[in-house]
Deep mutational scan, measured.
Amino acid sequence: MQRVNMIMAESPGLITICLLGYLLSAECTVFLDHENANKILNRPKRYNSGKLEEFVQGNLERECMEEKCSFEEAREVFENTERTTEFWKQYVDGDQCESNPCLNGGSCKDDINSYECWCPFGFEGKNCELDVTCNIKNGRCEQFCKNSADNKVVCSCTEGYRLAENQKSCEPAVPFPCGRVSVSQTSKLTRAETVFPDVDYVNSTEAETILDNITQSTQSFNDFTRVVGGEDAKPGQFPWQVVLNGKVDAFCGGSIVNEKWIVTAAHCVETGVKITVVAGEHNIEETEHTEQKRNVIRIIPHHNYNAAINKYNHDIALLELDEPLVLNSYVTPICIADKEYTNIFLKFGSGYVSGWGRVFHKGRSALVLQYLRVPLVDRATCLRSTKFTIYNNMFCAGFHEGGRDSCQGDSGGPHVTEVEGTSFLTGIISWGEECAMKGKYGIYTKVSRYVNWIKEKTKLT
C-alpha cells in the first residue's frame, strides 16, 4: 500500500490518463441519441435557420407576430419608411378606419389613436360632414345658397324668414311668412316636400332668348283662358290664391305678392273693366268669414305684352289694390325667389296649380277651390304637342294621358313649387288646347323671366 501511494504521488498524470480511459469505455446513459432527441424537440425550422439574422431580410411573422416588435424591426421587413409607417399605425392600436367614419364618399386613412378623412370636392370637416359648395344638395341650405369668396357655403332665406341657429334652416321672422300653410287642420295635408338634388348652379339658368321682337298675326285659340281631375282644397291650404270678379264672377285667378299687390295673367284683364279681388276665398257660393274683398285701382301688364300681336306672350300683369290686405292664416303671400332659384325650383319637376275653373272641358265651374299636382314636361315634348308657338318664356306641365289639367277660369292662378315646406311661385296658368285632352298640356308663363320686374313694381313704400 505504501508503494502504491508513492507511485500516485510521483505520477499524477498517469492516474488522470487511467481515469479518462475508464470513462470513455463506459456506456453513456444520461444523453439520448440524435434521433430520439429530435422526437422530443420537434420544432419547425425557421426561415433563416442556421444563418445569422443580421444578414437576412426581415420576416413579418418572425419579427412582429411571434413577439412584439419595434418600429426598427418592422422597418427591416418593409425596407421602406412609408410602408412601415402605414403598417405601424394599425399594428400599434388597430384600424381606426374600420367603422368607416368618413361621410359623403370620403376616404379614410388610419393613424395612431386617430384617423384622417380625405374629402371629395365640396366637403370638409373631420368626417367630411361639412358642405362647402352650393353645387351639392344646395349646400344643405333649406332655401338659398351662395358661395363666399373663400368658396364656403353661405345660406340665406327669402323675405319674412331668418336663418336658424344651425345656419342652414329657415324659420319665420314674421307672423305670416310667405308660402307657408298655417291653418292647423290643413298642415297635415301639406304636399310632399321637395329635397334639393345635386345641381350645376353655374349652368342652372337656361341660355334662352326671349323672342321679344317676333311679330306674329293673332292666333285663334280655343278655350285658351284655361282644375280638371283635381281635388277639393281645404280652407287655408292655398292662402296665396285669390279669385278675380268682373263682368262675371271667378273669371280668373291670381296670387298675393304682398298686402297691396296681386300677380295674374295679362290676358285676364281689360282696361276700363272694374275688377274686384277676393282673398281668403274657399267656396265661392258661401260666406265663410275668411274672405277679404278689395278693388283694383291700377293694372300693370308687362311692358312687352301686346294682345294685338299675341294674347299669351309675356302673359303676366300686376294688380294694385285700393287697401292693403290683412295677412292671416287664410290670406298669405306666395314666396318669389330670384331668377336663378325660381328656375331651379321649376326644374324640380312638379308643381301645384289651383283655381275655381271648370271641372271638365266646357263644363261647370268649381264651387270649392280645386288643386292638382302636375309634372313638368320637357321642352321637346311640349313643342311636338301643339302647332302653336311655345315661346321661351312659357313652359308645359300636365299629363300625356289627359284627364287632369287646369281649365277655363283658372287662368292667372299660381303654379307653385314647394321647397322644404315653403311654396314659391314658378308659373302662372296661361293657356292650353281644350282641357285635359290626351297628348295636350297646360301652358304656363315662366315666372323666372319676370321676377325682377315683379319685385321692382310691387315694392311697398
Rank of each mutant, 00 (worst) to 15 (best):
Arg180Cys: 03
Glu270Leu: 13
Phe399Met: 09
Ser385Thr: 12
Val92Lys: 15
Gly58Ala: 11
Asp410Arg: 14
Gly21Cys: 07
Glu286Val: 08
Ser220Gly: 10
Glu456Met: 09
Glu231Cys: 10
Asp378Cys: 03
Glu281Ala: 12
His400Tyr: 11
Glu165Ile: 09
Arg46Ser: 02
Asp405Met: 14
Thr16Cys: 10
Gln241Asn: 15
Ser169Cys: 04
Trp356Glu: 02
Val30Cys: 06
Val153Lys: 09
Thr389Val: 10
Cys28Glu: 05
Tyr444Leu: 05
Glu288Tyr: 05
Asn283Phe: 10
Cys396Phe: 02
Asn166Glu: 04
Thr218His: 08
Ala397Val: 07
Gly413Lys: 06
Ser430Thr: 12
Leu23Pro: 02
Ile7Cys: 09
Thr445Ser: 05
Thr458Cys: 06
Leu24Gln: 05
Arg226Asn: 15
Asn310Met: 05
Pro239Gly: 02
Glu320Leu: 04
Phe31Gln: 13
Gln143Ser: 02
Thr381His: 14
Val77Gly: 04
Phe71Ala: 03
Glu79Ser: 09
Ala366Ile: 08
Ser255Cys: 09
His303Ile: 06
Arg162Phe: 10
Gly432Val: 08
Ala436Pro: 11
Lys362Ile: 04
Phe71Lys: 05
Asp232Ser: 11
Leu211Trp: 15
Glu340Thr: 11
Lys293Asn: 07
Val195Pro: 11
Ser354Arg: 08
Lys45Ser: 02
Gly125Phe: 02
Gly105Gln: 10
Ile336Met: 06
Gly105Leu: 05
Thr426Phe: 00
Lys438Gln: 15
Val77Glu: 02
Thr264Tyr: 00
Ser49Gln: 10
Cys157Ser: 00
Gly160Met: 03
Ser329Ala: 10
Glu61Val: 04
Gln2Ala: 13
Phe424Trp: 15
Ser156Ala: 11
Ser430Asn: 10
Asn343Ala: 07
Val199Lys: 11
Cys155Tyr: 01
Ser99Gln: 12
Glu67Lys: 01
Ala233Leu: 07
Pro239Phe: 01
Ala250Asp: 06
Gly230Lys: 11
Ile316Gly: 00
Arg449Thr: 15
Asn310Thr: 07
Glu420Cys: 08
Leu372Ile: 14
Leu327Trp: 15
Arg364Trp: 05
Gly125Lys: 03
Lys446Phe: 01
Ala233Trp: 07
Ser204Phe: 14
Cys435Pro: 04
Asn5Leu: 14
Lys89Val: 10
Thr225Asp: 15
Ile15His: 06
Val154Leu: 13
Tyr450Trp: 00
Ser406Gly: 15
Gly363Thr: 11
Ile443Phe: 06
Pro375Thr: 14
Thr264Val: 05
Glu27Val: 06
Glu142Gly: 08
Gly253His: 08
Ser184Lys: 12
Glu323Arg: 07
Arg404Met: 05
Thr84Trp: 01
Lys438Tyr: 07
Cys268Glu: 01
Val77Gln: 03
Pro101Met: 05
Val278His: 06
Glu270Met: 07
